[in-house]
Design a protein around this nucleic acid. Sequence first.
DNA 1: CGCGCACTTGACATGCGTCAAATTACGTGG
DNA 2: CCACGTAATTTGACGCATGTCAAGTGCGCG
Lengths: 216, 216
Amino acid sequence: MKTFKVSEITLNVGQSVYLEGETSDKLYTILEGWAFRYKSMPDGRRQIVNYAYQGDFLGLQNSMTDKSPHGVEALTILRLCVFQKARLPSLFEKQPSLALDLTWLAAREERFLDEGLLSVGRRTAREKVSYLLWYLHTRALEAGLTFDNTLFLPMNQQHFADTLGISLVYVNRTLQRLRSSGCLTLTGRTLVIHDKTRLAELAGIDPKRPERRPII
Amino acid sequence: MKTFKVSEITLNVGQSVYLEGETSDKLYTILEGWAFRYKSMPDGRRQIVNYAYQGDFLGLQNSMTDKSPHGVEALTILRLCVFQKARLPSLFEKQPSLALDLTWLAAREERFLDEGLLSVGRRTAREKVSYLLWYLHTRALEAGLTFDNTLFLPMNQQHFADTLGISLVYVNRTLQRLRSSGCLTLTGRTLVIHDKTRLAELAGIDPKRPERRPII
DNA sequence: CGCGCACTTGACATGCGTCAAATTACGTGG
DNA sequence: CCACGTAATTTGACGCATGTCAAGTGCGCG
């Protein structure tokens, strides 16, 4: 294990863990803070692909020699643990349970991405915004980042727009309408969920197929 | 290895490997044929999340006890190899290279999903359809399923629509316009790419950031 | 020969995008 | 603590890409 860990680094808001198109032979775990993964088009259109926080791995999708197909940027101050990806094979040999953990994490990320695709592809704007807030709240719960249904969100409306595939202006209008529905408050960066069941309804989440409960 | 493999099964077009909401303690590899993974909303809206063919794993995202968050359906006759997921830990111990392979496959799937999110979230209808055809052709190349730029596509326009998050009617109109651009022919289920570079342009794929070349 | 399903096409409706400007919040230096 | 500059949020007016509805058309299969 001592040869696997390389170092610990800290990034500031807006700094990149790695850029789209950059090659990196590193792996990262988040010790503290929020980041987002994104992809973009030649003309600058951007799609945020997922958010990540403590315990999440970054860089697993990158080969060691090719350019990264996505970028990762810090949303808050971000403390990272850095590993050499080349050490992975020997690590898997010495500690097979680590391989299982990584498989589990990858599977979890895939489930998130699948949900994201459903959102972006098939939900209406109202459902999209509802779902995103529901999702962030649910993940924050899982990570112990909420206090009494209140939650600090490090992203702004532009991030929402780029996550959901709608325009900034329409995110704003949709948020207004959600606020007036009464089931949540979002002032500045503070989100309070008053009625999560209602929010799930607005998001078009199937009540008969509940999300998996937080693992631990 | 002999204790890992359970059996081999064959499905017909339209049959399900597993349904959304079903619990399954199995893992599958595709030996032959095409399938698609999908998720849906309570009211029936459907999002196809990815396509899979020979060599791809299915069921990795499912826990052994919870309901599957997505379904998988056969697009062609589908031959599958079935494994017991519970055997994975001991397998990883005996054969750490398998863990690496699975990690690689999971990373590959994540890259596909990221691309899908970019498509659905940020591309226009024309770019979406172009990208999907480009993507299917590229993957088919990688798998040795094309012959002289000609490729059999097992999916219909409804599948395209559900993949791209647009309506069936608009997929059709967009295909018409793509055909008249001259860079492809799509008659029935046969796709011929005449000018792949042009197709990539229409899809808004960054020329400076080429997709990773087929591995092997 | 006829039924069913995939594909087409036209007419019309609308959810969301775009442009532009106003307003508010926020950090920074004086 | 205030003044200022910059970024984030909000609102209005208008346009368009895409959706919806509905009616064909073509074709494979029994």
